[in-house]
Write a protein that binds this DNA or RNA. Structure first.
Length: 652
DNA sequence: TCGACGCATGGT
DNA sequence: ACCATGCGTCGA
């Protein structure tokens, strides 16, 4: 049948231009390069079971590039899936260990636990080719969604199916719940599985996989804290806690490893946080209530998609965003979704327009509260990379009042969390926006964008200098002066930052004899000891004079639920951290009037309620010959400190 | 499960 | 002083 040399796609009316029939959705394939739909039956070479690619390229785009099919292996994909989920859920593993385990799994070195005959040494992709395939397009699902009955489909295939009024699973005919039909969510675990499989296939010899997804609490040095007055209401009234990254609040673009002294990895696409407060701590989106971060005369740095405005429309790689305002929030209301007046391009809405005009990269976070978007995370808040605002306008919104509208298009060098692509975005044509016909105040960028795709380097980068920061960095950024050209001007700020960065979580003062728990929380040694005064980690249980057994007493870290009883037995001062604090204190004292509070640190240092062995060490802080490794110090943290130390030396 | 309510913070 | 796409509790 379809062996003519001429192959044709479907036309604008959806009908195949070759056989003139309008194929049902499950019989069309969409080219991942040009997005043109094709009638599967009329393709000369059908991708029956594509082993090594998730993406189908049509004959026009690929030439003969259809890859050879590989034999599908039935069965164990669900086992693999379960195994990976088990690894991700294992809280006893660090991210590195998890990455290693996943890689072992993908490399075929599966540790046998089920005892079944595991004779097939098939590659992961072969395995994935089995039951995970989308039943519509017969490929590994692109933006996979999973029905409650456990079947996986491409988001787009699934939506087409639903759009035809179908409400049963295409594979098993089980009923699809209305919520799944109207609000399908991308299965992020499956995305990682597929992406990891692709990576392990395409680059089997590469180093450890980058972990894009899910950071866990043990990786977080500090939590948001609550004021004493507000403690009853828990996190509802939490103060936002320490900022871990060293970028200024008005920093544009991705947050890179250089600005992440805590982990030295930067904020990765796909990173998740429990809530807006934690998201703020990593600098992805600073306001903990507002959806737009920006300044009207300067630009907007980031936005949150949280489902607060019903006019928003999310298509993943691009979305339509609604400005803020237009609501009556008087009387301390926060839940008023009723618009009562028109939005204007002012304040944050104007900041977004500036970013549009300049072509700045705008960080985007999506919240689980956005219920209508398939691209929103199921839980918490997720960083999805940078987008550019290509145009903006005003239009009458759903509620009948004018709203500001923004077209965001993704332009990040990392792939989005919902794709299995190995590379980031490429410049793409703008989508057609029907509502533009009725729009007013349409604004488009005239000048060349500051953040643009560099064809030579094949990546997005600053083509013009990013705007100079007008604010000091939040974290203990000792290099900000070089970065921003402004930086540390007043020594008073240094002291303030010192306090903010190196504050004890108990006394909220700059730490004196700092200790770092295995869960990476920092306290004064004396504060931590005082917190557990009178409590021992070993409880003798006597019964009638007869020792029965000793039982371990669980002693929780003051900042998190981790049991630190073992750590408390051998409390060691974190000397490297102490050195940094000491030298910072010295520096801030040198830079300002020394008369102010000259004896401050001596007073702190001589509280003297505990042992003095550490004071002795203070004097030897510059010679590390006897430096004994701190068992509870993660390598990242010590590298942070040595980095800080180096720059400190360089600055002096 | 969802809306109302009330208290928070931080940035403009 | 005002504004903001939050958060937890309570009750229907």
């Amino acid at each position: 049948m379809a062996h003519d040399s001429i192959q044709l796609p479907c036309g604008g009316d959806g009908a195949c231009m070759r056989c003139k029939v309008t194929p049902p959705a499950e019989e069309t394939l969409t080219c991942s390069t040009c997005a043109t739909p094709w009638h599967v039956a009329c393709l000369a070479s059908k991708p029956e079971t594509l082993a090594s690619t998730l993406q189908w390229h049509c004959p026009d785009c690929s030439g003969d590039a259809l890859l050879s099919a590989a034999a599908a292996v039935d069965g164990s994909s669900s086992e693999l899936f379960a195994a990976i989920k088990a690894i991700e859920a294992d809280e006893s593993l660090t991210e590195k260990e998890k990455a290693k385990k996943r890689q072992e799994l993908l490399g075929g070195k599966v540790e046998e636990d089920g005892g079944n005959g595991n004779e097939e040494k098939s590659s992961v992709l072969d395995v994935l080719d089995g039951s995970l395939n989308c039943s519509f397009c017969m490929q590994l699902p692109d933006r996979p969604v999973t029905t409650p009955c456990g079947h996986n489909f491409c988001l787009k295939c699934f939506q087409k199916w639903i759009g035809q009024g179908k409400r049963t699973c295409a594979k098993c005919r089980a009923t699809i719940p209305p919520k799944m039909a109207s609000q399908p969510r991308i299965n992020s675990t499956l995305v990682s599985v597929i992406r990891m499989a692709k990576l392990s296939k395409s680059n089997a010899a590469a180093g450890p996989l980058k972990v894009y997804h899910f950071i866990h609490n043990q990786d977080r040095p500090d939590k948001a804290f609550t004021t004493e007055r507000a403690q009853k209401a828990g996190k509802a009234n939490a103060a936002s806690g320490k900022i871990f990254v060293t970028v200024p609040p008005d920093h544009f673009g991705p947050i890179t490893a250089e600005n992440d002294p805590a982990r030295n990895q930067g904020v990765l696409v796909g990173e998740c946080w429990e809530d807006r407060l934690e998201c703020r701590q990593w600098g992805a989106h600073l306001p903990h209530v507002a959806g737009i971060a920006g300044q009207s005369n300067y630009g907007a740095q980031s936005v949150a998609l949280s489902g607060g405005y019903e006019d928003d429309e999310d298509h993943g790689e691009w979305f339509l965003y609604t400005g803020s305002g237009g609501r009556d929030l008087s009387g301390n209301k926060r839940t008023n979704k009723e618009q009562s007046f028109d939005q204007k391009f002012e304040k944050m809405n104007e900041a977004l327009r500036v970013s549009c005009k300049k072509g700045y990269p705008v960080r985007v976070v999506r919240s689980h509260k956005e219920k209508r978007s398939s691209y929103a995370p199921e839980k918490g808040v997720r960083y999805d990379g940078v987008y550019r605002i290509e145009k903006c306008w005003r239009n009458v919104g759903i509620q009948g009042f004018k709203v500001c509208r923004y077209l965001f298009v993704r332009c990040d060098n990392e792939p989005a969390p919902w794709t299995s692509d190995e590379h980031g975005d490429r410049p793409r044509p703008l989508p057609t926006i029907p509502e533009l016909k009725k729009a007013v105040d349409i604004f488009e960028r005239k000048e060349s964008p500051s953040w643009d795709f560099d064809e030579e380097g094949s990546q997005w980068k600053w083509k013009r200098a990013p705007p100079p920061s007008k604010k000091p960095a939040n974290g203990a950024d000792l290099e900000e002066g070089k970065r921003t050209g402004k930086g540390i001007r007043k020594a008073r700020n240094t002291k303030e930052r010192l306090l903010k960065e190196f504050g004890c979580l108990i006394c909220r003062q700059v730490m004196n004899l700092p200790v770092t728990t295995p869960c990476a929380h920092n306290f004064c040694k004396s504060c931590l000891e005082a917190a557990f005064a009178g409590k021992t980690s070993i409880r003798e249980r006597n019964n009638g004079g007869r020792a029965l057994r000793t039982q371990k007493n669980v002693l929780n870290c003051p900042s998190c639920p981790t049991d630190i009883s073992d750590f408390l037995q051998h409390l060691q001062v974190n000397r490297e951290l102490m050195d940094v604090i000491e030298s910072l204190k010295q520096k801030s004292n040198e830079n300002e009037e020394p008369a102010e509070e000259p004896s401050e640190e001596h007073m702190n240092g001589s509280e003297g309620n505990t042992d003095f062995s550490c004071d002795g060490e203070t004097g030897t802080k510059n010679e590390n010959a006897d430096h004994s490794p701190l068992p509870d110090c993660e390598p990242e943290r010590s590298s942070k400190r040595s980095k800080v130390d180096t720059s400190q030396v360089a600055a002096e």
